[in-house]
Amino acid sequence: MSTEHHQESYYYVPGPSAWPLVGSLALFLLAIGAVMVMNKTGPGTLTLLAGFAVLFYMMYGWFGKVIGESESGAYNKRVDGSFRWAMGWFIFSEVMFFAAFFGALYYLRTISVPDLASADNALLWPDFKSVWPSAGPDFKEEWEAMKPWGIPAINTLLLLTSGVTLTWAHWGLMKGNRTQLKAGLFLTVLLGSVFLGFQFYEYGHAYHEMNLTLATGAYGSTFYMLTGFHGFHVTVGTIMLIVMLGRSMKGHFTAEHHFAFEAVAWYWHFVDVVWLFLFVVVYWL
């Protein structure tokens, strides 16, 4: 590739690469696959699977290349700065994504449910009372809302602890204690996985014993959307942590040069903070 001679210059510009194209193909397949699955036509599942396969191939190849470049010393301080800005802005975009769902929850709780129970709307929903949790005026079945002080509280502790273990791992990296780095990462992955396991169990319980499903009106919708997207982020974060653990084992990262690790840590802390908000407004209040 034509990239080597850029190395001594002030910025690294990568050479031509087909990975972006592969990535586009992946998203395209995922999109049409999902459309087909949802509308029960065509070879939807197959297309979705193909999309995921291409996506993972792309991630493996693209990230592998980036890791290779990084380890070969192609990235200088400027490049590092770019990564920092970019990761920061990416997390900001994630904050806004969650903001849409938190906003929806706020709106349903404080505006639409009380409004539906107001005198104006008595013409349409005469017996509806405004209480939260609510599944709306037309939801007739029995159901239960989540309680905060069981699994959710444990999960909060798990995630908070995982933030600590991750920071501990970072300290290890900074002072050159690789064992501490690996142990810290391992513990964090473990805590993340246990969190996910609990979450999974909780969903099963909700679906089977509490009659709390996605279709349980406003409460069910917001509960599953918020915790679901959060859970998805924990999953992604855990996978990233596993990659970091693998790289640490391979001897990657130095005290000066380890932005990949830091980026994952930022992401993990972000996911942590989202959970705290979730715990307070979804489970507790």
Binding site: L108, S112, L116, A135, G136, D138, A218, G220, S221
Partner: peptide, 11 residues
């Protein structure tokens, strides 16, 4: 889900 449907408390 019922984000946008009054029947479920949405709007």
């Amino acid at each position: 889900t019922h984000f946008f449907s009054a029947a479920g408390g949405g709007d």
